[in-house]
Amino acid sequence: MGFFNRLKDSLNKTRHSFVEKIDDLVHLRKAIDEDLYEELEEVMVQADVGVTTAMELVDRLRRTVRERRVEDAAELKPLLKELIREMLGSLPGRLNTSLDSPTVVMVVGVNGVGKTTTIGKLAYLYKSEGKKVILGAADTFRAAAIDQLEVWADRVGIDLVKHREGSDPAAVAFDSLQAAKARQADLLIIDTAGRLHTKSNLMEELKKIGRVLDRDMPGAPHEVLLVLDATTGQNAINQAKLFCEAAGVTGIALTKLDGSSKGGVIIAVRQTLGIPVKLIGIGEGIDDLKEFNPVEFVDALFS
């Protein structure tokens, strides 16, 4: 099965909670009136597009309907598709890269969102493109995190830099960067802790890792990738705000789209945070993490 069809299948739950409900609404009505706009807004909120983003989308829809003198409610669905595509932009997600190797990616996010799995799949994605990848296990708070990363490193066939549990995460990041330079790696991916119950300590830890990397290689990390779980909907936005304040997030990896009816959160993430979604997870397979293509996403959602 091609990637587009896999993406389409992964969006079944979101399509049912969002697009099919819009279909039902516009087919039940002929006239375009305020009641219809309010119901469309409600459908979007339920699909976790978010209240603010839903209101903005409906406002844009009203303006477009007036400007184009649209009278038939059935024409609203293609208009919404067009407006959502505009909101998401047209450029595919691509990690920031460094002109001088290695490119350093620091991965952040709370425990349970699929962070370690995302790192493993990201390593596989870039190794498949012929890149030399190294992992750094800077989540030293949990022994399990180091063990899980080691399993992924073995599975993908790449090197892992690790210290013992309880070590200084910034020291692991530093040693990982030294190893990546010495071994002429193209990409270094650094895992970090995700324990929000010690929020202030965690945020200081992330800042320290960033300072250590930048001191050794100015401009690093080149990408701070925040992993979010699509099934948590609007909670993902709240998590994102915390990490954006502390870590200077540059891109989002949205996991578990295949298990969620809340895929509309992609629109909310882009609109509310202004941070591009760069990667999406659409299944459990090792090759089910892909660069996010907004045009492809909207086509698959509305297909």
Results as ranks from 00 to 15, higher is better:
G2D: 14
D9F: 04
D9E: 14
S10K: 02
T14W: 09
L28Y: 08
A31I: 06
E34H: 11
L36D: 05
Y37M: 08
E38P: 03
L40Q: 07
L40Y: 08
Q46P: 01
V49N: 06
T52D: 05
T53L: 04
T64I: 02
R66Y: 12
D72M: 04
L76P: 00
P78D: 04
L79I: 15
L79N: 01
K81G: 07
E86F: 01
G93Y: 04
N96I: 07
S101F: 09
V104M: 07
M106G: 02
G114Q: 09
L122A: 13
A123E: 00
L125V: 04
Y126E: 01
K131S: 02
K132I: 10
G136E: 08
F141G: 03
A145L: 10
I146G: 00
I146H: 00
W152A: 12
W152Q: 14
A153W: 03
D154E: 14
H163M: 10
E165N: 00
A170F: 05
V172A: 07
A180L: 10
A182Q: 11
L188R: 10
L188Y: 11
D191S: 14
A193M: 05
G194L: 03
L196E: 08
T198A: 14
T198V: 14
N201V: 08
L202Y: 04
M217N: 09
M217W: 04
P221L: 05
V224I: 15
L228V: 15
A236W: 02
E245T: 15
E245W: 09
G248H: 15
V249S: 06
T255L: 11
S261P: 06
V269H: 00
G274V: 02
G285V: 00
D288W: 08
L289N: 09
E291Y: 06
F297I: 13
A300S: 04
